[in-house]
Design a protein around this nucleic acid. Structure first.
Length: 919
DNA sequence: GAGCACTGC
């Protein structure tokens, strides 16, 4: 890590010189030993500081040898930027072993010695800082398990073959080899003449420049690492066709704009043809023609999301109806739409558009529409037969989000009575057969992806402390591996903060032997400006280490990641229908997740993934897939929506993986209690109104009931704030106390909902000030989102015919409104100070972040139950027993409240019980 | 006196 005070250039030079001299001495001293060791070690010997390694093919091996030679030459020529770790991911002992038997020039010999020594020094430094336990990895995907001898034999053959071709390759095509072996970042510096000069000045070595290698232009290098592009498509695809399709209606467009767009689009057409999916265009369209439902399996990078809707448009499906494509995430829908619009040659929102919450970017003439899956689900309320679509593509189906899963059932149903509707289910490999089975054996269409190989390294033994092991692995990578940024997966903010501390502690004072290590956190609750930092380019010579939560698994993609460290855990939310409690607990992640994480290393070039668990546990202990969200969520909202679409028999609804029946029953029960369903299980008028709102049924109920207490405006605000749930307050570890104080300043009598209302009101008064948010440790992004939700809800009020009333001071009215929806969630105080839920007796506590914490109100209504270290009620308000009779007379009876009514002797009435739910 | 993974309408 960088020192706090930047040393002067002279100091640096002196220091470098001292270090070099020291090193030189050590080299001399160690030479004999080292020679002995190298000489005595046989192939496959794992002696030395590093792990052993094998090559999967000759080419890799040859590349490694060439690379070492190359590095040696450059180092010999005084290239300062050549790092000790530039063995392209090999360790020093590996290099020594590898070069054994090779004829080594002086430069090469020196280089190896230098490597060895620098390695020893850094290792020593690691040890001094308590890193004495380097994490060992296997490469089981390359190893033939117990076959060390076979390995040796194979190498002998490879070596022989290699020797024949080596010389001419090296001599004739040195430049090419150089480019092959060097990574773009480093070469950019060496490439340009200017850069060289600069380096020369900086260097402290006495240089021999006569035979300096001329380096090629930097751009070439990137090209070498690009995946093979597919130059020519099938002959059947004539360019005329493309030409014709570019004829967007001219009448509606200014000629010049059109020309410009068309030119851009023409260029883009070339890119389009290089996508793997292009090769499959004709057979794909045939398959769509011949079958109503088609499963498309395409890895990332195949171009399916952007291309297939366009192909379908080209052959005329858009004449029958819109071509829809769903995405699980908003940003994905937006960015894909933007890309396709560009390719098509129109503005976003014209022929190509997207539709997400708060932002309907489509018009009458939109023919290709990207949307979030939740949006499509919602549109079923108005258009249950998807009449305006001729094709619907459900993308990223393998992610199995709650919404996609519900869509499957609906869409399958629609396809039965709408023979003209084409369905495309697109997924990454794993679940294809399951999808096919579910959709009545629909054919599976495979499109290969375009990704770089990622080698997987498992630990040899389980790691007791994975956080520690992660940090050590980061350092190991940094000290021994070639260029490329590192991505580490953690389970949450807390872990990330700890890891950052640990990492900075262990790298403190590591000095100049180490390149700079940029440690950057990323998680969803991180303020936006800090999130943006991970997208900034890594400065030359430095290495970026991104500590991420699951957010980096699917939601965001970081450039230039070459190494992934995966401890194999994630936090998962699961819902217990019996207690109605959600719990967020750390669980081992699934194989699918692990592979997804590993894949993040192979986006720019071949990468490596270090898994902090053994291969055995990968194979035997990890589940194949994550449990689909639908099986571990509260389905209240979904059930209400399905009911209002007209699905009556939910227990027999055709789910691909049905949720536990208890969850459905719980949801139905709750809806009945809320009077959204009648005793026949049919939707009531109230239920229909509730379904209009994009919220949980309880919240919808609260909002509708607020009309009665004439405090709609306040409740709307509260609901909006609940909608961004939990992400309002930001609490960085290092400023925890400040953040806590800031939060306490917002506390208002009545409970947490009042606090939220207060926060919003204040924010509004400051003119939605960003600075004010920062001063008070509030997340501006979340508040903005709350404002969006609020606006949407206010718009909806008219539709549902609710008068926009307001009464700021009627705190009781506001609380009664909330209680109308959440009367189910009540808990009363016991004499020992704990709380017990009213419905199913269950011990719970007020969450310490609540404003009611420590106040011990007799009866509270909570927003949700969460299990962390204890079972906590989050979002509490104090309520009065008689309110329950008022807002839920069908649920609570007068006699249930005997213990509470009137004057209750302190600490006794509650304990005497008599307060239970009537049924 | 604890601590919120990630989406979405």
């Amino acid at each position: 890590m960088a020192e706090t005070q930047k040393p002067t250039a002279q100091e640096l030079r002196d220091k470098d010189k001292r270090e070099r001299d020291e090193l030189h001495e050590r080299i001399m001293e160690k030479e004999r030993q080292s020679k002995k060791r190298v000489a005595s070690s046989s192939a496959g010997d794992t002696e030395g500081p590093g792990r052993s390694f094998e090559f999967s093919n000759e080419e890799e091996r040859r590349e490694a040898i060439d690379h070492i030679r190359l590095m040696a030459r450059r180092k010999y020529l005084g290239e300062r930027e050549v790092k000790i770790s530039d063995l392209r991911g090999r360790q020093v002992s590996d290099a020594e072993w590898l070069m054994k038997g090779e004829k080594l020039s002086e430069a090469e010999q020196q280089y190896l010695k230098l490597e060895r020594d620098l390695y020893d020094v850094t290792k020593q430094r690691m040890e001094e800082r308590g890193l004495e336990r380097p994490v060992g990895y296997n490469m089981p995907d390359v190893y033939d398990d117990d076959d060390q001898k076979g390995q040796n034999k194979r190498f002998a053959v490879l070596e022989q073959r290699y020797q024949q071709t080596y010389d001419e390759k090296w001599e004739k095509n040195e430049e090419q080899r150089l480019e092959d072996a060097t990574v773009s970042k480093a070469v950019t510096k060496y490439g340009a003449q200017k850069g060289r000069k600069e380096n020369k000045e900086k260097t402290q070595y006495d240089l021999i420049l006569e035979d300096a290698v001329e380096f090629g232009e930097a751009e070439v290098v990137g090209g070498n690492f690009k995946a093979p592009t597919l130059e020519e498509g099938p002959k059947a695809e004539s360019s005329d066709e493309d030409e014709k399709d570019m004829n967007v209606p001219k009448a509606i467009r200014d000629e010049r704009v059109f020309k410009k767009l068309k030119k851009e689009a023409d260029n883009l057409q070339k890119d389009r043809k290089s996508l793997p999916v292009y090769l499959y265009k004709a057979p794909l369209l045939e398959a769509v023609r011949d079958y109503q439902v088609l499963i498309i399996v395409g890895e990332t990078g195949s171009g399916k999301t952007t291309q297939i809707p366009q192909y379908l448009h080209e052959v005329g499906y858009s004449k029958i109806g819109k071509i829809g494509c769903t995405q699980p995430r908003r940003v994905a829908a937006m960015s894909v739409a933007a890309r396709v619009a560009k390719e098509y040659g129109c503005k976003v929102g014209h022929e190509v558009g997207y539709n997400i919450r708060f932002e309907d970017c489509t018009t009458d003439r939109t023919i290709i529409e990207y949307m979030t899956d939740g949006m499509l689900l919602r549109s079923f309320l108005n258009e249950p037969d998807m009449a305006s679509y001729s094709v619907m593509m459900i993308d990223e189906a393998h992610e199995r989000t709650l919404h996609t899963d519900v869509l499957f059932g609906l869409v399958k149903d629609v396809a039965r009575f709408r023979q003209d509707l084409k369905l495309i289910i697109s997924s990454a490999t794993l679940d294809a057969e399951k999808f096919s089975e579910y959709f009545d054996n629909a054919p599976i269409f495979n499109v290969p992806g375009r990704r770089f190989p990622v080698s997987i390294h498992y630990t040899k033994a389980p790691e007791a402390n994975y956080l520690d092991a992660c940090v050590i692995t980061v350092l190991q990578i940094h000290l021994t591996q070639g260029p490329g940024d590192v991505l580490v997966f953690f389970t949450g903010q807390q872990e990330i903060e700890e890891a950052m501390d640990l990492l900075s502690f262990k790298t403190r004072g590591m000095g100049t032997t180490m390149g700079e290590l940029l440690v950057l956190p990323i998680y969803a609750n991180l303020p936006t400006d800090m999130q943006a930092k991970i997208f900034e380019a890594t400065p030359p010579g430095a290495r970026k280490v991104v500590l991420a939560t699951n957010i980096a698994e699917t939601s965001i993609t970081i450039d230039n990641i070459v190494f992934v460290i995966d401890p194999g855990f994630c936090k998962q939310n699961s819902f217990n229908p019996r207690t109605g409690m959600e719990s967020l607990i750390v669980v081992p992640c699934s194989k699918a997740s692990a592979n997804q994480r590993a894949g993040r290393a192979g986006r720019v070039k071949p990468g490596k993934c270090f898994r902090l668990f053994t291969k055995w546990s990968y194979e035997h202990e990890l589940d194949d897939d994550n449990a689909p969200e639908i099986q571990r969520s509260n389905l209240g909202h979904v059930v209400l929506m399905l009911k209002s679409i007209g699905i009556d028999d939910l227990l027999h609804f055709d789910f691909m993986d049905p949720p536990p029946p208890e969850t459905l029953i719980k949801a139905l029960e709750q809806l009945y209690a809320l009077s959204a369903l009648n005793d026949q299980g049919d939707l009531t008028k109230l239920g229909r109104r509730m379904a209009e709102f994009p919220m949980d049924p309880q919240q919808s109920k609260s909002l509708i009931q607020a009309d009665k207490y004439k405090c709609v405006d306040e409740v709307v605000t509260i609901c909006s704030m609940l909608g961004v749930d939990g992400a309002i307050f930001y609490r960085p570890k290092d400023k925890g106390l400040h953040a806590d104080n800031a939060r306490k300043n917002f506390h208002k009598p009545g409970g947490d909902h009042m606090t939220m209302l207060h926060v919003y009101k204040q924010w509004e008064e400051t003119g939605f000030s960003l600075n004010w948010c920062m001063e008070n440790y509030l997340q501006n992004r979340s508040l903005k989102r709350a404002r969006d939700i609020r606006e949407q809800l206010v718009d909806m009020l008219e539709k549902v015919e609710i008068e926009h009333s307001s009464n700021v001071n009627d705190v009781d009215g506001q609380r009664k409104s909330i209680l109308s929806g959440f009367f189910y969630n009540t808990a009363r105080l016991r004499k020992d100070g704990s709380y017990v839920t009213v419905k199913h007796p269950h011990t719970v506590e007020i969450h310490p972040t609540s404003s009611l914490f420590g106040q011990q109100p007799r009866l509270v209504c909570y927003h949700e139950l969460v299990l962390t270290t204890k079972e906590f009620m989050r979002g509490c308000i104090e309520v009065k027993p008689e309110w329950l009779l008022e807002v839920a007379p069908h649920f609570y009876q007068s006699k249930d409240l005997d213990g509470f009514k009137g004057k209750m002797p302190k600490g006794q009435g509650a304990a005497s019980g008599g307060f239970g739910a009537a049924k």
